[in-house]
Design a protein around this nucleic acid. Structure first.
Lengths: 339, 339
DNA sequence: TTGAAAGCGCTAACAC
DNA sequence: GTGTTAGCGCTTTCAA
């Protein structure tokens, strides 16, 4: 049987209340007593019972981390990295993270994850795009919620977002600095705010540098942002208009797909066409050439989201904040150098 | 305030004990009472408090799912899929899965995950290879443990393993059926039992079909099993001995790396050389050509592991079982057809 | 077939 | 500064 607070109290010759106070490092305990109690704790290898604490307090000590299963199973470990950041941070505080997925096609009648349904969590972190109906249903629960890399259309929430606008701007300016004037953009799932912002950044850069914005150099009709979509997007763009000398792809997966297409066309990268991606999902050293991209601080995003959650929980304040995480250009060999 | 068992009791005009019995669907409650109570439960939208239950019972209702962080962050969502299987299954039973990672270089002095240290879990599922020292330390805790895709050198445990031997055999026989006689094998991390077994399967097939086993067609000195290792392994093999017409790579990542190498050599796949992988990590439709591989049932492995855990926990029996999960060949375009 | 009551381990209000 | 004690929500004897 694992030791209880009583065992500690007995061993240290104090009351259980005192032990409890020491555990919480309370002011009004003498140093001597603290020392005694801590010694007993160590000797018994005592750890407070989680359930017992939770029962008396009213919090559960759990935070749900929710995402759709296809996001979790994506080829690239994007949300995995974010989760890890959250998990690391939660270890410091006294929280457990409950990772749960919902079907991508979550509907009105699908069951919410059990821990949420039973209110066995103090808060909810939602990563990536989720169906509106999920948000609606969660909203009714009045559970403190933090979004990562996604922001609902309606409602006020705290969120950790990527500075996609600035990222799109930077990425495009990098190409411009390399001397490119006819730059293409490929994107998918263009309704997604993140993708849309990257595109806006692209347009801003074009405008800022007095280049011509040519809609024929843009292809945003792909539904998803997979490698396959990238391949097809590049293909269609190539059919429309093939004076393009550089491509900004809305993410690395599409960039890789596009790369594949151009190689099949016997075009050299970056000699014939430069490609820049977004996310830095995979520093695959075998990739040929290594992809220039915008690095998104995945671990940090998870960390930030958890801290935000703790703030909300502690202060019980309802001032919604949005954090924009900075992105950083990682110049590899798929752009420029070839001039 | 969320409703408690008392609220339900009051509303149904019974005692809390009766409500509890109904919740557990106990025999000796009349159907009428059951109906009454269930009605009240529904009306109040009552859910039993997890902590309260756990406090009185002695179990925690949690299972830890442990893996090294580089496994979790791998490019391919291999263990992610396994986790998801576990999670799905745990939802059915009344369990939560606590996903925690340890540093890949976990040492004697690193802290164990908090939920384990504080014994806040009923059992432990370990996925993939972990350091010996971790196993040693966990063993002292006497926590029921199930391993997935890994089996410790010492000790008796339950485990869900891949039928690597048979998979290696099948993969090689596929190449043999295609008419190949000079078949190479590339592998990394050859100390890993899974890799070793795949290699043994390879040798068995060669022998069974009376082909010549030529050690110069084998390269197993790479430390890891990444794409990069695959590239290098193929390269070295090519320098040694280049009459090989087919390659069995110990996993898909290495197969992809090897593919890249042969393409750089201007060899056609599968016309000049066939390649088969193992794992089916990513049905990347852009991959050229799509990779023939051995499919590993990732979700099912997670499911099985959880069921095993529940068996151990329920029966409290200590009969260690190993399950070998079957693998299935997925023939795509990187092998054969070219004859 | 049902109810009363003790107790799981801990916290916090209050007493000393 | 420290101890006493009620009670968090639930399960489980034991009694009725």
């Amino acid at each position: 049987m694992r030791p209880t607070i009583k065992d500690v109290a007995k061993r240290a010759n104090v009351s259980t209340a005192t032990v409890s106070l020491v555990l919480h490092n309370h002011q009004r305990i003498s140093n001597l007593t603290k020392k005694k109690v801590r010694k007993a704790i160590k000797e018994l290898n005592y750890h407070p019972s989680h359930p017992a604490r939770r029962l008396v307090g009213q919090s559960t000590g759990n935070i749900a981390f929710l995402l759709t299963d296809d996001h979790f199973l994506r080829t690239e470990p994007f949300y995995t990295g974010i989760f890890l950041g959250t998990e690391f941070e939660a270890r410091q505080s006294n929280y457990y993270i409950l990772l749960t997925t919902i079907p991508t096609q979550f509907g009105r009648d699908d069951a919410l994850p059990r821990c949420i349904r039973e209110m066995n969590v103090d808060g909810l972190i939602v990563a990536g795009k989720v169906p509106d109906i999920l948000i609606e249903r969660v909203q009714n629960l009045k559970l403190p919620t933090v979004f990562i890399d996604f922001f609902p259309k309606k409602g006020s929430y705290s969120a950790v977002l990527i500075d996609n606008l600035n990222g799109g701007l930077q990425a495009t300016e990098h190409l411009i600095k390399c001397g490119h004037k006819k730059i293409g953009f490929i994107g998918g799932d263009i309704e997604h705010p993140s993708i849309r912002d990257r595109f806006t950044g692209f347009k801003m850069a074009i405008e800022k540098h007095n280049l011509v914005f040519d809609i024929n150099r843009v292809l945003t009709t792909e539904k998803s942002t997979s490698k396959e979509s990238g391949y097809h997007a590049a293909q269609k763009l190539h059919q429309n208009k093939n004076d393009i000398t550089a491509i900004f792809a809305c993410n690395d997966a599409m960039a890789m797909g596009a790369m594949r297409f151009y190689k099949n066309q016997n075009l050299q990268i970056p000699q014939d066409i430069s490609i820049i991606g977004f996310d830095d999902i995979d520093s695959d050293p075998v990739q040929d050439p290594p992809l220039t991209t915008m690095k998104v601080p995945k671990l940090d995003m998870g960390t930030e989201a958890f801290r935000m959650m703790v703030d909300i929980l502690k202060k019980n304040t309802r001032s919604y904040r949005k954090i924009l995480m900075p992105v950083e250009i990682i110049v590899r060999d798929s752009t420029c150098n070839a001039q």
